[in-house]
Design a protein around this nucleic acid. Structure first.
Lengths: 201, 201
DNA sequence: CCTATAATGTTAACAAAGTTAACATAAGAA
DNA sequence: TTCTTATGTTAACTTTGTTAACATTATAGG
């Protein structure tokens, strides 16, 4: 009689890893605990994943796909090109606030090395592509010349950086969004600030 | 005869912790290894620090002080108010690239909780204050009304976020600065991008 | 100067983690 | 059926954070 656990242990492990990550973050995700909670031997995960990094990579890819999906949904709902870029920035931060542990896993120090997990790099690039396409469409709508469009990539990087910086500082507790204001509005305000010209409003 | 290690073990431990951090990052900083490298018993650090978080906090405070110092130096060297904000952003990123491990320790997940180490929070606030003062001086030079100046804090947050986002994405390998360009110039370019108005140059 | 007490060391032990080796069983192809 | 591979298991090894129990030094008060 099979005292062995069978079935798709891999998927069960992944799902359980998701649960642990959400509740306790990447540091709380211990292979042994994961195995115990899943009801499987402590060495079983090594049959399905390339050690701890392997599991982290799998979870990170999953998270990145949902992240990109969410960004695409937002992008599809906003008609105006410039508003779309802003909305994406807000959605970016919103995701980080909703799923700080996933966000940290995706971009933080415990993310497995990108060059060791090509699918991970690909998933990350996909998310950035959504932002880049939005920025490019702004540039096109402004009838930019080809020469000017060459900087479109830089403009996308700038948009990405702003959203990323806000997201990081917020989930790390360095920036505390005002309690009496909608998070998205707060973020949109920060994204719209122009540092070189203080005569706004 | 004193087979016991004596002298200011605390300082030696701190210095050694600095070395390890620089070479291997916060994860490589193990208390036992630190003690061994310092030539002291494996439990000795607990006499001088409040466990691992205690040491991390001490190192982080040190790093933050040098970070703030560097920012202040840059701020003092630039006359023009607006250029000063930009230069600070570039210096912010430059520090992150020069000392990625320190930067990660300061802002990342393994930083001990701010509310548990008041001196740590103070050191972090100091660094941000440099940015905030620079932004405020731009606003003042533009003859802002008091009402408008109320948003100065938000403008400082925006400046901070941009620099922070670029720094994070660069040291995490998501943004790769062009090899044929000066790092500061690249950063200044990103900081100056205005997302809502593509008609530049 | 002597002695009680606090500060600073030490060694030894504990539990938890990542990982691997050695072995056991199930499933499928030949 | 039988050989091979995939998938489990248990047991061990190393490292880490932490604490307890004990040893030594420094220092303050008499």
């Amino acid at each position: 009689m099979g005292k062995y656990h069978h079935g798709d242990v891999r998927n069960v492990l992944l799902q359980q890893a998701e649960n642990i990550l959400t509740k306790e973050g990447p540091s709380g995700l211990s292979l042994r605990r994961l195995a115990r909670l899943t009801g499987v031997s402590e060495a079983a995960p090594y049959r399905h994943f390339d050690g701890k990094d392997g599991i982290l990579a799998a979870v990170a890819i999953d998270a990145l796909e949902r992240f990109a999906e969410r960004l695409e949904n937002v992008a599809a709902q906003v008609e105006n090109h410039q508003e779309r870029v802003m909305a994406l920035g807000a959605a970016y931060v919103h995701f980080a606030v909703d799923f700080p542990q996933h966000f940290r896993l995706i971009f933080g120090r415990e993310r497995p090395p990108l060059d060791q997990y090509p699918e991970l790099r690909e998933a990350a690039d996909n998310a950035f592509d959504v932002l880049q396409r939005a920025v490019t469409s702004v540039d096109r709508s402004a009838n930019m010349t080809l020469n000017e469009a060459a900087t479109a990539y830089n403009r996308a990087l700038a948009a990405w950086s702003r959203a990323h910086g806000i997201a990081m500082l917020v989930i790390d507790g360095m920036i505390v969004p005002p309690a009496d204001q909608n998070l998205d509005d707060f973020v949109l305000g920060l994204l719209a600030e122009d540092l070189t010209a203080p005569e706004h409003h």
